[in-house]
């Protein structure tokens, strides 16, 4: 049975493509994107008396445990703090998953060939 990990990546608004491209290069199949707001004190700027909160995007990516480090490294390289995305990424262990077509459980499923 494959163990999965949930990778959460938080980047500046509009830079999720950097995250997903990096993750897909490292073997991830896809992810889910959410909109969010950052609350880091240093980032909240007052602009003519109006507080401007930086908009963020969150990417949730489910990957097998075996490729977790590879995907995290790829995200750090492609959308990390040194890029315009200014992203961070971390992973959480997932105990159980529903809805993913796992080839080892369903032998009739054809394996993807590249």
């Amino acid at each position: 049975m494959v163990n999965y990990e949930c990778i959460v990546s938080i980047v500046n608004h509009g830079y999720t493509d950097l995250v997903m491209e990096a993750a897909k290069r490292a073997g991830a199949t896809g992810g889910t994107l959410l909109s969010a707001r950052g609350t880091g004190n240093a980032e909240i700027e007052e602009f003519f008396g109006v507080k401007v909160t930086p908009e963020k995007d969150v990417a949730l990516i489910l990957v097998p445990h075996a490729i977790r480090d590879k995907v995290l490294a790829a995200i750090n390289e492609g959308a990390g703090m040194s890029t315009k995305g200014m992203g961070i990424a971390f992973s959480m262990p997932v105990t159980d998953v529903v809805g993913i077509n796992r080839p080892e459980e369903n032998p009739e499923t054809p394996k993807e060939t590249k």
Partner: peptide, 19 residues
């Protein structure tokens, strides 16, 4: 959820649990 996801392609989805 497994029953629901098997209804049709439109009803597919994923779910995962983090302790």
């Amino acid at each position: 959820l497994e029953e629901r996801f098997a209804v049709s392609k439109m009803a597919k989805g994923i779910a995962y649990a983090i302790p």
